[in-house]
Computed example of a mutant assay.
Amino acid sequence: MKIALMDSGIGLLSAAAAVRRLRPDADLVLSSDPDGMPWGPRTTEDLTERALDVARAAAAHHPDALIVACNTATVHALDTLRAELEPDIPVIGTVPAIKPAAAGGGPVAIWATPATTGSPYQRGLIRDFAGGVAVTEVPCPGLADGVQEADEAAIDRAVAAAAERTPRDVTAVVLGCTHYELVAERIRAAVQQPDLPPMVLHGSAGAVAAQALRRIGVGPAPDAEPSEALTVLLSGRESTLPATALRYVEGRMLAVASPAR
């Protein structure tokens, strides 16, 4: 079994680690686009072309499924990717976990990139899944870039600024960018109020990993014999995990479980 994941950068690490926890026996293909990132400021047409190139590089390794581990690419390019790759390769998109967050009753904050915050796509998800719940959209300029570069000072600044824009009474925060899941505990610490119940963070990594397994008709097997196959593609070139990936628990877990090649 082989699962491919794609993103502009290292945001795919969270979903890759989730796949590894559910199916340690799965071979992994990680396809990203350091030459073209960030994708957020690009036009839809340009972003879609970049995403197609990254997806094609992954597809050349004949995965059983492809996870689009990027909210921005899912919004703008998912239909195009599916039109090209399915039914041969199931393509699984990443949607912000607004529905489960709203199920808790709110209030809810959605941390997302400036391009996604206030977008018709996100507003549609709020309308469809969070009716009657107080929702605050919180733009997080610089956070994804800081995470990508493992720039501690930039991450601290971006998290602090977003926390200032987050109402103190929120009970849940939706992590609306896959990069944010890599610093989830730092976000929790910044938003948690000492006099309120524990904050609930809602990411998408576990859900997309589980959906990928469902799409190929297999279930979790967390005790399976670990695979040693990890293919890393950087703008189509075979490489190793970037040094910045190893600054995060998820990246180190993949490196230890699967020697990069």
Rank of each mutant, 00 (worst) to 15 (best):
G217R: 04
P222S: 11
L230C: 03
P222V: 00
G217F: 06
A221R: 03
G219F: 11
T231G: 04
G219S: 12
E228M: 00
P222I: 07
I216D: 13
E228L: 11
G236L: 06
I216F: 14
E225W: 02
V232K: 00
E225D: 12
G219K: 05
T240P: 04
G236Q: 03
P226C: 10
T240M: 12
L233M: 13
E238M: 10
A221N: 11
L246D: 10
A221Y: 00
I216R: 09
T240I: 13
T244V: 14
L246T: 05
P220S: 15
R214I: 08
P220A: 15
L246Y: 01
A243K: 00
R247A: 14
L233I: 08
G219Y: 07
P220G: 08
R237G: 00
L234F: 06
L246Q: 07
I216M: 14
I216T: 12
E228P: 06
I216Q: 05
R214Q: 14
A229V: 15
R237N: 03
E238W: 02
A221G: 04
R237H: 14
S235F: 05
P222N: 01
G217H: 01
T244W: 09
P242G: 12
G219H: 12
T240C: 07
G236N: 02
P226L: 10
D223C: 02
P242L: 12
G236Y: 00
D223A: 05
T244I: 12
L241M: 10
T244Q: 13
R214E: 15
A229P: 01
L241Q: 04
P222A: 06
E238P: 14
V232N: 07
T231E: 07
